[in-house]
Simulated scan of single mutants.
Amino acid sequence: MPLDPALNSLGLPKPPSETRVVVAMSGGVDSSVVAAQLAEEGYDVVGVTLQLYDHGAALAKKGACCAGRDIHDARRVAETMGFPHYVLDYENTFREAVIDEFADSYLAGATPVPCIRCNERVKFKDLLNTARDLDADCMATGHYIQRKMGDLGAELHQAADAARDQSYFLFSTTKEQLDYLRFPLGHLHSKAETRALAQRYGLSVADKPDSQDICFVPNGNYAAVIEKLRPGAAEPGEIVDPNGHVLGVHKGVIHYTIGQRRGLGIGGLADPLYVVKLDVDKRQVVVGPKEMLATRRVPLREVNWLGDDGLTDMAEREIAVKVRSTRPPIPAILRPISQTEAEVELMVAEEGVSPGQACVFYAPDDSRVLGGGWIWRGR
């Protein structure tokens, strides 16, 4: 709650009843609780669910984000709490801005993170603009991340619950977007608290399981989706060692990721081997010992900087970074090259750093998110 009594719980200077909030509703428990909580507090809530693809098509899976069941669940929550709910058709936008790039990046040997692009190009861009068109004062989501007011404006901070923190997927949020966004769940210390709130509001989604996969990738099978999107993409080739010696054959580079050990089909060797490089042009999967995965220098592009000063104001600065969503931040040095490019030097080498993934920046001494960038070429 804000300290200034003149502000409401969303930090705006008027009563909740005069404050319109668009809530991005996926049909899951998190965004449903946000909408229900704000409605109970008396805000003028408008729920919006995006239909991102045809939920009857082969790409979608039962229970996927924004598929048919989720649209139904979001609508039911709106009916329960008594606020309007709209479904917007964003299929073309989602395919062009997220799915096509996902397929092309994968074909190029990268390991893309489409959830970041969806937040960046769809939810926090087109949907945010729609919220403004609806005369909303702000847009709220169910993401586990915190928005705090600093001396120079709104800041992005990690969630109170480290196990639920989604800051890795929101690093590209701009300062302008952050002024308009709200994240009411970021202060909670466990998912159990969220589900307890859902029970208290009588929501039908209180016990709904969390989605574990990318919404348009059934059962986490990336390769199957790529083959549907890009027929003929799974061309066979050679599995080679770093010196080019052929160790076996594969059924397509798209079936492999950097750091992969299992399922290589080259058993019988004395030491375990890992995928250390994907050579798309030669259709080769390069394998080597684990130490070849170690990386300290990470080149970045499309950098988004959320610090108080300018990115290039300093030649280098100490920060902490995540190169994978599931790992804690580690010490690093950030060296800007331009307003959108930089290099990160990790103090301790990380394994399996791959082009297409994100490198997210954090303040070294607190929970603040300072932005991040996209890893764009091999070690």
Rank of each mutant, 00 (worst) to 15 (best):
P2A: 14
S9T: 14
L12S: 07
S17T: 12
V22A: 09
A24P: 03
G28Q: 01
A35N: 04
A36C: 12
Q37F: 10
A39Y: 01
V46L: 15
A60W: 00
K62M: 03
G68W: 02
D73H: 02
T80F: 01
H85R: 08
H85I: 08
L88K: 11
D89A: 09
N92L: 12
V98Q: 00
I99G: 01
K125D: 15
D133M: 14
D137A: 15
G142R: 07
G142S: 10
R147N: 09
M149Y: 14
L152S: 15
G153I: 11
Q158L: 12
A159V: 13
D161I: 11
A162Q: 14
R164C: 11
T173R: 08
E176C: 14
S190I: 12
R195K: 05
G202S: 02
D213L: 02
V217T: 00
I226N: 00
L229N: 01
R230H: 03
R230F: 01
E235W: 05
P236I: 06
V240C: 09
H245Q: 15
L247S: 13
G252P: 00
H255D: 01
T257L: 02
A270Y: 13
D279L: 01
V287T: 07
G288R: 09
T295F: 04
R296K: 12
P299W: 14
L300Q: 07
W305N: 04
L311R: 03
A315G: 13
I319E: 03
V323W: 01
P329L: 13
P331H: 12
R335A: 09
Q339H: 15
E343P: 03
V344P: 00
L346S: 05
A349F: 02
E350A: 11
G356M: 04
G356A: 07
L370T: 09
L370I: 06
G372I: 03
W374C: 09
G378F: 07
